[in-house]
Design a protein around this nucleic acid. Structure first.
Length: 581
RNA sequence: GGCCCCGUAGCUCAAUUGGAUAGAGCACUCGCCUUCUAAGCGAGUGGCUGCAGGUUCGAGUCCUGCCGGGGUCACCA
């Protein structure tokens, strides 16, 4: 239940009534009327812009509308005060009983508090990671994996039917390289010295693949030409890599619903079908592209290629779908793949790509726009890179894989929860510094710890109350006399909790999970602040000696805070802690 | 050169999708532990939101043009 939406409903009803009474001209559009928390708490609990938005179309002074609206709103028991302010805002102050009731709502809803029906069950596909199956996940994949998974959780929480999907890039030349690299390890397993030539993958992670190949094929492949073993070894090695990738992702608690293979699109007619659909729309033609301006390519030569008229849907130039040797470009099967997603009935698609793929965005959007008849929106989130540090020094590590920091390295150093949280404390399109020393620091400088500590403190209070023989189970708390929560500091904390359902919707609408992390930090800050107020004013402590009723009311507030922290961390994929140890 | 992203306090970043006097943390200054966890809290200092125009009741946010940083640019995925 979004309290802001509820009050907006009240405002709209009131405006409608005013129209009926002739206090407002008929036919006004209320769509732009908003009810929001004001930036400055001194302005009240909520503010509506109704008077400003309606002044011009109504041909009235904002002030006059605001005053008329205010006079009617205060008749509602939820509205304690309504006063026009500034250029025409109407500031609202809500009755304490609203906030007290909200505490009960949060406890009742528990982990589901803030769940929204915003998505209306809309089917939405989140494609992320989609790394080449040629080795373990490395640090560059971590942020995209965490972001995609958190976004999926956020969309699920806000009422969407989410599918997490991984597109296996197993159709290109790099999986042939993988096969040859694995074959050398297979020779090595048979006692021969491997020839890891330039361009092959040198990583140790292929040694067990070579041994597995030996277990399966013995020595039978050793003397055969590549053409005899390439297909089998490639399949074997690719599957081994995918198994490893799944394990890596599981370390971060990331689990895909669907794995789609690029290679599987070849030979099925799906690529041809997708291009035929584009062709039917007159978007496929043979042509020669202009050389890129301002950049000299020595080996440039005019080439006639099969092109997709992506410029018809907002791209800057048309894009080749076929190489000069007649084989498909990477783009062609990806078009087919997105066509497949459209045909599977998704209402919206999201792709999460590295920022270095920014040049790919327009053409993919163009393809989806054409193939779905403009019905299915595609949002592409570009993930900026992560710079690793340790105590402020650039961090390089190369144990297992030889040349790069792996996902496993990061998780083993920092832990999954810390890694996930930190990766989500920045907008996706801003670069992020990840310092192994700082993220493990146990101080308020570290947002992960800070939020966890707030949750642990609340659990500590609950334990203390139980030790004192006070019942604090949810059912009891719901029956507590919440009107005892009458102090401004307590109501302020309840107000922060009230923002949660609204924040979920804003974050979900914008595909911006980082907002959850920032909100949790603010909520934790409010909790810590309130906690310390108990130092000076013992009447604000959660546990009140000799007053069970007051204790239960105050602990209900603490419990509601914990519920929100827990729900928020759930979206980030981080486990709340009951104690800090 | 084209396109995309970024530019906000000394530093790292937010800013409720166009709202009121632009907010946090760090750093700096000053306070708070016989106390439900001081692993914390409070107060203060700090801004021409890169620059210049435009749109409107109102712009960090939208539009145009510059400046600076990053990414990317036909037969790589």
């Amino acid at each position: 239940m979004n309290l802001f939406a509820e009050i907006r409903g009240l405002v709209l009803d009131t405006l409608t009534a005013m129209t009926a009474e002739g206090a407002l001209p008929a036919g006004l559009d209320f769509a732009a009327v908003a009810v929001e928390p004001p930036r400055d708490a001194a302005h009240g609990d909520m503010a509506t812009n109704a008077a400003m938005v309606l002044a011009k179309p109504a041909g009235m002074q904002p002030r006059a509308i605001a005053e008329a609206l205010a006079a009617r709103l205060v008749a509602d028991p939820r509205i304690m005060l309504a006063e026009p302010a500034g250029p025409g805002f109407l500031n609202l102050r809500l009755a304490p009983v609203v906030w007290q009731g909200l505490v009960a709502q949060a406890i009742t809803a528990g982990a589901g508090f803030g769940r929204s029906t915003l998505g209306q069950g809309q089917k939405i596909n989140v494609e992320f990671v989609s790394a080449n199956p040629t080795g373990p996940m490395h640090v560059g994949h971590v942020r995209g994996a965490v972001f995609g998974d958190a976004l999926a959780r956020l969309l699920d929480f806000s009422g969407h039917a989410v599918t997490r999907e991984y597109y296996i890039n197993d159709g290109g030349a790099q999986v042939d390289v993988l096969a040859r690299s694995a074959f050398e390890r297979y020779r090595e397993a048979n006692g021969l010295s491997p020839e890891i030539r330039e361009g092959l993958y040198p990583g140790d992670y292929l040694i067990p693949v070579g041994e597995a190949l030996k277990a399966k094929y013995g020595t039978s492949l050793l003397d055969k030409p590549e053409s005899d073993w390439l297909v089998d070894v490639r399949l074997f090695a690719t599957e081994a890599m995918m198994a490893m990738i799944r394990e890596d992702l599981a370390l971060l608690d990331v689990h895909m619903d669907v794995y789609s293979s690029e290679k599987a699109l070849y030979g099925t007619g799906k690529i041809e079908a997708a291009l035929a659909e584009l062709d039917r729309q007159g978007l496929i033609y043979k042509g020669v592209l202009e050389p890129p301006k301002g950049k000299t390519l020595e080996d440039w030569e005019p080439r006639e290629q099969l092109l997709f008229r992506s410029t018809a849907h907002g791209d800057d130039v048309d894009r080749p779908v076929q190489k000069s040797d007649g084989s498909w470009t990477y783009f062609a099967p990806d078009i087919a793949y997105h066509f497949d997603k459209v045909q599977r009935g998704f209402d919206a698609l999201i792709d999460i790509l590295g920022a270095d793929h920014g040049g790919y965005v327009k053409r993919m959007k163009a393809a989806v726009a054409a193939l779905s008849g403009g019905r299915v929106p595609l949002d592409i989130k570009l993930i900026q890179l992560v710079r690793l540090f340790k105590n402020g020094e650039p961090f390089k590590m190369s144990k297992r894989a030889g040349t790069f920091v792996t996902l496993r390295d990061v998780v083993e150093q920092a832990g999954a929860d810390v890694t996930r949280f930190v990766m989500l404390t920045r907008k996706n399109d801003a670069a992020l510094d990840f310092d192994f020393a700082k993220v493990l620091e146990q101080s308020k400088d570290n947002p992960v710890f800070y939020v966890q500590y707030a949750h642990a403190r609340i659990c500590s209070v609950l334990r203390r109350a139980r030790d004192a023989g006070i019942a604090v189970d949810d059912a009891t708390l719901l029956n507590a006399d919440l009107t005892r929560l009458d102090h401004k500091a307590e109501l302020d904390l309840a107000k922060k909790i009230a923002e949660w359902p609204r924040l979920v919707e804003i974050a979900a609408r914008g595909h911006e999970p980082h907002r959850v992390a920032f909100y949790l930090y603010e909520l934790a800050s409010d909790l810590h602040g309130h906690w310390n107020r108990g130092n000076d004013d013992t009447s604000l402590r959660f546990v009140q000696e000799g007053d069970v009723a007051a204790t239960q009311a105050k602990i209900a507030l603490a419990r509601a805070t914990a519920v929100v922290i827990s729900a928020g961390l759930g979206i980030l994929g981080v486990k709340p802690l009951d104690e800090m140890r």
